[in-house]
Write a protein that binds this DNA or RNA. Structure first.
Lengths: 247, 247
DNA sequence: TCGTGACGAAAGGTCGGATGTCCTGTGAGG
DNA sequence: CCTCACAGGACATCCGACCTTTCGTCACGA
């Protein structure tokens, strides 16, 4: 095994074993390199890799730290991975969403705090009559994100968010708007919201299923008929590397 | 943005845009470094990071290649991330499994080929009367893995497999402590198998839910009473880095 | 003709040091 | 007491050299 991979494993072990806890600072590069028995260059490769998946947080001029290791932070790296998938696997991802989102929606109907439900309604209301595509996508993302968060399970929330990556959603929406299905989507959003607000988990679950199944079905026929009409990489360079937490 | 991160984005773009397809070979480090406008060292950090999440496959003496980008390969990296989570989030993961596995089981009851069902029964049969804990866990993992694969959705399958990691050690502990857990688990496995074999998706779904909810409930009470009894890093060094595919 | 083994080019693996850039604590000065 | 410039520490980047592995080539022998 290359020394770099070995270093990755050792650092991982240091964290999992509890020797390094969330927020702890690692020894400086030179010291850690000596301790692990490799050069700084190789160590930096290991650190970079662990940094990509949000396990380590390097701050120039300061030091290298272990992140909070919160589920949302680590699962966030999943979004990076999802971006790589081509259109022929989008349906598989959507199918998983059709499993997860209804479940999350039902959970939200039971667990979501009143204040959050009010805010959820506000999201629907703040969308005008003739929204731009960008506003529509942002609004849709916000709506589903709040519901996922309302499930009370951070793992489930992050998973859903990662799977409905901005790329895929933007692509889908682009097509949906052209089909003029905006109205139906808004009606379904409204129905989901009302089911949650009235604390009816099964109704909420069903509407969520209907909602996603609709997108799924549309995409299925779309991929079947207009082969190649949907190209990848229409929306890139998002570079959403934000919510690093620094204790 | 650091040049290394920039390089990661550029390589990602090259892949997502189709300039580099699965199996394609990247220019050699020196050339690619020059093309992207950075040093070989920095480029190597980027490559190492992309290699960790299975996007690139570096082969010494040969070259660097884009992997197949298959969902199972990329989601496999999720397992690495999941390993970092502490026990206080295990319940969240288990809850997600309680959503995904029943759905996968129901799908398997409809889609699993006869030959695979026979093999599934074989897995149950090959476990002796007095299995070791290790054999039990391995058998359990195999059983659930086959069902997940039987769903016909590779994304769902990989996701379940990745999420099963942290709960594995919990199951080990359970097998060691709880009386009758082994017998009950085997009965439930048998019931799940029979439901699949007789093509009854709803029965299969219910048994799977019961099965996982049982583990969940046990773990919940266990974490409540014996706080801190479950230490992390009981099972480490797995380092399952195997199924690299080289076209 | 075919198999085999040695050779060498090519590519990644590792290393250590030099220099640039950024953050932070600290102490002089107002 | 507050402000700001300075010095130290730590990461960022680059460079160039050398090692290791892989694979294609080619000559040799069966």
């Amino acid at each position: 095994m290359p020394v770099t991979d070995e270093a990755i494993e050792k650092i991982k072990t240091m964290i999992v074993s509890g020797e390094l806890g969330p927020g702890d600072r690692l020894p400086k590069e030179a010291d850690l390199a000596e301790r692990l028995g490799l050069s700084r260059s190789s160590l930096r490769e290991a650190v970079k890799a662990l940094s990509l998946i949000r396990v380590l947080d390097v701050r120039q001029g300061d030091g290298t730290y272990v992140t909070s290791l919160a589920p949302d932070l680590l699962l966030d790296a999943l979004g990076f991975v999802v971006d790589f998938h081509r259109d022929d696997t989008v349906l598989d991802f959507l199918e998983v969403r059709r499993i997860l989102e209804p479940a999350a929606t039902a959970m939200a109907a039971l667990a979501m705090p009143e204040a959050e439900i009010v805010a959820l309604g506000g999201v629907l209301a703040e969308l005008g009559e003739e929204p731009t595509v960008e506003a529509l996508v942002a609004n849709d993302l916000d709506f589903h994100r709040r519901i996922a968060a309302g499930s009370g399970n951070p793992v489930l929330c992050s998973l859903i968010e990662s799977l409905s990556g901005p790329t895929a959603r933007a692509r889908i929406w682009r097509g949906l708007t052209q089909e003029g299905a905006v109205r139906r989507t808004r009606e379904q959003h409204q129905a989901i919201y009302e089911a949650i607000a009235s604390r009816q988990p099964e109704v909420a679950r069903s509407w969520a299923t209907v909602h996603i199944a609709g997108v799924e079905e549309w995409l299925r026929t779309m991929l079947g008929s207009a082969e190649g009409a949907l190209t990848s990489a229409e929306v890139n360079g998002s570079g959403k590397r934000s919510a690093q937490d620094r204790p």
